[in-house]
Each structure stands twice: as C-alpha cells, then as structure tokens.
Design a protein around this nucleic acid. Structure first.
Lengths: 241, 241
DNA sequence: GGGTCACATGTAGCATGTTACGTGTGACTA
DNA sequence: TAGTCACACGTAACATGCTACATGTGACCC
C-alpha cells in the first residue's frame, strides 16, 4: 500500500447540500434577502434555491437546533432574531468565557498564535475601513475563535461560535453599526498587544472592555424603541453586573 | 371570544415524532441499547421504532447539530461519546458559568427558588439512595437548570443543558459511577444551604467544588486506561487551572 | 504470499408523494 | 353590528422512491 499521494482533504467532508443551505440561509439573512420574523415556507426556499425540499428542511432543522430559526406546524418557519435581553445574556456568557481564555493565551506566549492574530487583525481593520460588514464580522469571528482554540478549549470555541452566529443575524445593513465598525476593530488591537506582551491580566481586562462595548452596541441597536434605552442598561446590570 | 377554557399547553408544541426520536435515542444510549461508537443506520432505527426514516433522520440531524451523533456518508451514524479531554473542557465551561450564577441566586434570596431546589434535592437524594441513575441525573439536571434560570440567564441555562446531555451519554451502567451517586448528591446540599442562607460567596465556592469533583469523576471514568490517570490530571491543569 | 481489482452490499443524501391541520375568508345568523 | 362556522388554501410532518458512493469480499495476477 503506497502512502505517498496523500489526500489533500477529508473525503467524507465533501460539502453536502444541507450544509450549503445552512450557510446560504444565514448569508441571506445578513443580506436582508430573508427578513427576520417573517413567515417563509420550505417550498418557497427550495424553489428559490433550485433544489428539493429535503436538504432545505434538513438544514433548517439543524439551524433550529442551534436556535436560529423556528418552525410552526403547518404554518412555516421564521428566522428568530434575538431579543435585546437574549443578546445581553449571550454577551454575559462570552464575558465569562473569553477574558480568562485570553489570559491563558497571553501566558502561553506562542508566537504562532500572535502571528495569526496579527494577520487577522490587519484583515479586520481593512474590512472595517471599507465598511465591508460581512467580511468584518468574519474576521472578528476568526479573531475570537483563534483565541479560544489556542486557550485549549475547543468546546468553548464552538459554544461561542454558535452564540455569535445568533447575534450576527441582527440589523442587516444598519448604518449605525457600519459607522462604528472601525471603532469595534480598534478595540481588538490593545488585546492583541497585551497578548504579544505576555500580559494576561491586561489582555483579559481589555477583552472584557471590548465585549462589553460591543454587547452594549448590539443590544441597544436591537432595542430600537427609544424608551428601551434605560431598559438595556437595566438588563446589563441585572444579567452581567 | 370567550377566553375561559384556557389551552393547557401551547398547541404548536404538540409532540412530534422527531422530538420523540431525539428523546428515545438518548434514552437508548443511556440504557445501553445503543452503544456509543458503533455504526447504525437510519433504516435499522426506523424499523426498530416502527416509523419511517424521515422523522428518524430529522431527529438525528438535530442531535448531530448538538454534537451527540455523527453521520458518515453512505456508512451510517454513530453516537459520539465525548473524550476525556472534551469532558474536562465541558466542565471548564460550566465552572465559568455556574459558580457566578449561584452567587447571584443566593443574593436574590427568593424563597420560591429555594423551595423548588429543596424539592429537587430531596428527589435527587432518593434516586441516589436507590441507585436509580437515570432518575438521579434528571434531578441533577433540574437542580442546575433551576439555578441558572433563576440567575436570569436562560441562554446560559440552555448552553449548560446541551453540554450536560453530552456527558450524560457516558458509561451506561458503570458501577463505579453508581456507587458514588450518593456522594455526588451529597455535594449539592451544602450549595443549597448557602443559597438559603443568602451567602453568595460560599455558595459559589461550593458549586465550584462540586463541579470539579463531578468533572474529575466523569473524566477519569472515561479515560479507562490506567496510564491515562496522570493524563486526566494534566488535562485539568491545562484547561481549568 | 502480496498486491490489484471487479463486484455485491448497504447506506446517506436527495427527490417526491401523501396526510393532517392551522389559518384566513366570507357567507350566514341573530 | 357582532358572533359562528363551513370551507378552501398552504404548510409542516411524515412516508416512500431513487441514486451515487464507501466499503468489504473474493477472484485474479505476479
């Protein structure tokens, strides 16, 4: 048995239509092609994508398990956008997981990780500068995922990734968010600097600050009603503080 | 429109075969009727359950999204039992989420919560005494879920519930675990006492101790190979400490 | 014996058919 | 006008048909 000729990719990982549906649906939501809260049917979506109902249903069921869509018997399904409260809860979870993780990464002093983060950082800033929101969030995703994975807890990385997919569905093209993209990007650099310096405590504190800032931005954005502004603050006190 | 005659349950929540499959599969794994790691097919399971392949596949796909089973193209599916490392990672997540939550609950001093926990506690001890493992873990589940929900973070409650489902699949009938059931149950009471006393700091510390003890038990149990014992300790140092 | 290779077998993935049911609509009643 | 109710419509849930393919087996060659 010659074991030269190495397979360049896991064969069983061949993309399936179900996977493509999952990705496509999320992309459609982010582009505003699918509106959150509106009722759609598997029939519609299957025809729109030019495939049969099975992989569409399969993909949507998986997304349902992740909390991204909800089915209503004999009615249809809808994309479930998280409430302001849910967003705060999600960030509370991230605040519990990510600051400690970044401290561990800083302590490791692994140049490979720092290098990768630097690369991601640059790409993120570039995307922010050109207000390319999809690209920006993808790199942001990568930044946080790299840290959690490097900290040695891939389960936590998965959990955060799933939670983050939820928050990515809000405000597809909100100018408010787009305008503050460079600001959000800027919050990452101090974290990276502290990691590179091996200063875990500072890195942790900066990550915490970044998450709180981003979380407040997103939750306030969701609670679009002006009278909800104090409500959002109260939520943060209740759930995080 | 008379709104007496209130519906006693959300109509759309009518149990679907897909849901029953999900529950049944987990139960079968816990009873040893399905063995982790072994290859099964949707055909087999559908026939065994006396239903068609669709709801079986649907349920398994949802479980796959939760990380409980894995499909292999044209081969079958298998129940994925977590490795020792994954168990440690899961408990690291729980250690980040539950101690702070229990501190908040203690600070609330809500008698209703305390009452409910006392009830659960009693049921858990009873199940432990009669070595009824399924019942025991169900009540344990309820105990932790009540705390996280009462702490105001239902998203965290969901996350922990999903993580916990994973660890529930290991060792269906391991005598080692069954023997230590009363011990695990006993660890809960001090937590409850601290909550009732409104002592958040103590409650938090006790919850931490409980999670570490349970986590070490489960991870050591999974790493059945004797030479892995030091490995498990190393994992805990790496991931948690 | 060690290696290849054609083939039977069983499966996930995908497509399509069927059924029960939640909902909106509009006629009908009082 | 306000309430009810029969009915058409669209849908998820469920059942079944079809296909490409990953694998094990055994014949075949060197």
């Amino acid at each position: 048995m010659p074991d030269t000729l190495r397979t360049e990719e896991r064969i069983s990982t061949r993309r399936t239509l179900t996977d493509e549906v999952m990705e496509k649906v999320q992309q459609m939501v982010r582009c505003g092609e699918l509106r959150a809260g509106k009722l759609y049917s598997v029939y519609q979506l299957a025809e729109a994508l030019g495939i049969s109902r099975s992989p569409v249903r399969d993909g949507l069921l998986k997304l349902e398990a992740a909390g991204l869509v909800g089915f209503e018997r004999n009615r249809g399904f809808r994309v479930t956008v998280p409430s302001a409260r849910q967003i705060v809860e999600i960030f509370a979870i991230r605040l519990a997981l990510e600051p400690p993780a970044v401290a561990r990464v800083a302590a490791h002093r692994d140049p490979a990780v720092a290098g990768r983060l630097r690369q991601t950082m640059a790409a993120m800033e570039k995307a922010a500068a050109s207000l390319d929101e999809p690209s920006f969030w993808a790199h942001d995703q990568d930044f946080h995922n790299t840290i959690l994975t490097a900290a040695g807890n891939s389960q936590a990385a998965t959990v955060v990734r799933d939670l983050r997919e939820r928050t990515r569905l809000i405000g597809p093209g909100t100018t408010t968010a787009a305008r503050s993209l460079p600001a959000v990007a800027a919050e990452h650099r101090p974290v990276l600097d502290a990691i590179a310096a091996g200063d875990g405590v500072t890195a942790s504190a900066r990550m915490r600050a970044h998450l709180e800032a981003t979380g407040r931005l997103l939750s306030a954005q969701t609670a679009a009603v002006p009278s909800d502004d104090p409500g959002v603050d109260a939520l943060w006190r209740d759930i995080v503080g």
